[in-house]
Design a protein around this nucleic acid. Sequence first.
DNA 1: AACAGGACTGCAATCGTTTGCCACAATTTG
DNA 2: CAAATTGTGGCAAACGATTGCAGTCCTGTT
Lengths: 347, 347
Amino acid sequence: MDPLAVDVVSAPPGAPSRPATLADVAAASGVAISTVSRALSNPERVNAATRDRIERAARELNYLPNAHARALTSGRTRAIAVLVSDVTNPFYFDIIRGTQQHLKAAGYTQLLVDTEESDELEDSMLTGLRRSFDGAIIAASRLTDRRLAALASEMPLVAINRQTKGVPSVFIDTPSGIAQSLGHLVSLGHRDIAYISGPETSWPNEGRWRALVRAGEQYGITVRRLGPFSPKKTSGAAAADAVLNSGVTAAIAFNDLLAIGMLMRLRERGVRVPHDLSIVGCDDIFGADFCNPPLTTLTAPIEQAGRVAVAMLLSRLDSAAVPGIRQSTTLPTHLTVRASTGPARTA
Amino acid sequence: MDPLAVDVVSAPPGAPSRPATLADVAAASGVAISTVSRALSNPERVNAATRDRIERAARELNYLPNAHARALTSGRTRAIAVLVSDVTNPFYFDIIRGTQQHLKAAGYTQLLVDTEESDELEDSMLTGLRRSFDGAIIAASRLTDRRLAALASEMPLVAINRQTKGVPSVFIDTPSGIAQSLGHLVSLGHRDIAYISGPETSWPNEGRWRALVRAGEQYGITVRRLGPFSPKKTSGAAAADAVLNSGVTAAIAFNDLLAIGMLMRLRERGVRVPHDLSIVGCDDIFGADFCNPPLTTLTAPIEQAGRVAVAMLLSRLDSAAVPGIRQSTTLPTHLTVRASTGPARTA
DNA sequence: AACAGGACTGCAATCGTTTGCCACAATTTG
DNA sequence: CAAATTGTGGCAAACGATTGCAGTCCTGTT
């Protein structure tokens, strides 16, 4: 039919219609299946000469181990699930990038799952796919502490940006950075400041808010809380309007997506940033550097968080019972001042 | 140890340390394994009363089918591999978003693979993981037509933005859009125009270039080709410098990432866009609307491409031998004029 | 009243590996 | 020179499901 199909690389002359199995290799090299299996995975357990013969046969037959059969007996899949609450969010892009790179380097496959901000979906995915992965990385769990801890006791788990007793985690220390953000605004003369809240079920959102309140106390100012807003660019419009209406001179947004959305809306309404209003974001996602004006934001090592999470997970997969390894890692953030913040307008 | 672990939802009183299997359910409901299997997957094949009993037992034991065991016999995994050449590229995020959503809706799992722009890696991933997925979606193959066609004859495959005989594909019709882009520039008075080339191994890159040359002929102008440049924001600097040096009044970039990078560099060098130079991008990725100035670009239905690819793939998975289904789909693009293009400067 | 045909359900083989245990030979050791 | 090692390789039992084939028991026919 298809002339091109003739010289398919993986289908040598004696083309097997069906992919080769251990049994085929065994037959071809005149040994038992078990010997082939060992030759391929425990090379030292078999004689060098035999091994050579087997390896050659395997190569000729184009043998590839069947991952499922393997997983069935060994229980290991060499796949890691990565759960994000919304693939749409650029924040997760960086996480995914970090995990993907590190996982591939370690010979693992990434199972990407979108939990759509739903705790139920998150739970059912985790339990339903349980045996399809060796461990999971949860980048923004919507589960309760209780449930999360329970799951963590049943499978290797690492949470990102979520600290719960009994659950290994990678924590991006945005809260301390938040204090810096506020300090930056205060030093520019701002006294009326608003926090643009993200979803109330978001753990980081609450952490950021609390940190802000605490920092506010130190500076002797009270920060206003606006929202909640969905952490999307489009929600930025409503957020911007709310900010304008509130009369503050500066706002710290739950994340960059919201901040960028606000920037767009403000421009539309003719409000000059930072002349009339200063905006600070959180995370420093893709786009924060080239939006208009470039966003002052709390830079988070997002990609690194993904990599670290993978490293933690893999280390506990290998050495199952190493209680010594760090159960929790904290990654520092730093304020990146760009052009969306400036001196407070003198009312 | 952990007080929370006591009331784990999925570990009822008589807690089985090991997850329940068909055998457990069979024992609990006093029937044979095969009956349980049927009751759960072919409900009509078993008596209603028995089925009820079995279902109850399954629920109580918290039975969950083992995907690997299932894959071993049935050969189907309910997983689809999605290959992108670079997870870093925002263009793919929209694809991933589209595939993810549609796949989950269909009850499939997404296996995300980054091929790092390498044809070898792409090939080995595809063959190596062959039995871990039911089909694959390749978003930007670096393989030769020959090899791609060969692979497509061995497994269900859908390519995005790559037309090769024998390979079902979803094609975003950027080439015809390119003519529009050029028309737009010409109508603004531009006569000296450059194409900022992406990687030469990129299939879409060549297609865009050819379309541009052809359109140029119609308008009686010759377009200059600059590059190649890596399709990254950082490469935009070199591209911008090259454009400036070439003396053209407008440039059409291989993709938005490059275009945005150029915008940043031009701003840095004090070149006013579009006053001094007009820039047109391709794809309309995340960020093209809020960069500075907002980018005039060829809007591509990226997310839709992902969804359509999934739909095509799943339809051929279900009805294996339906030769009637469309083997190739073309998605239209349209020019979105924003603020990066304007009248040609009168030299 | 004997029988054909359904409706259910069970038996057992199969998918492709891994791995504990045993057998056999060759080599050391006492 | 007998006994204990050591090095190799095979047997066969898992792993957890699916499915063709073959009973068993009813029910409706003739």
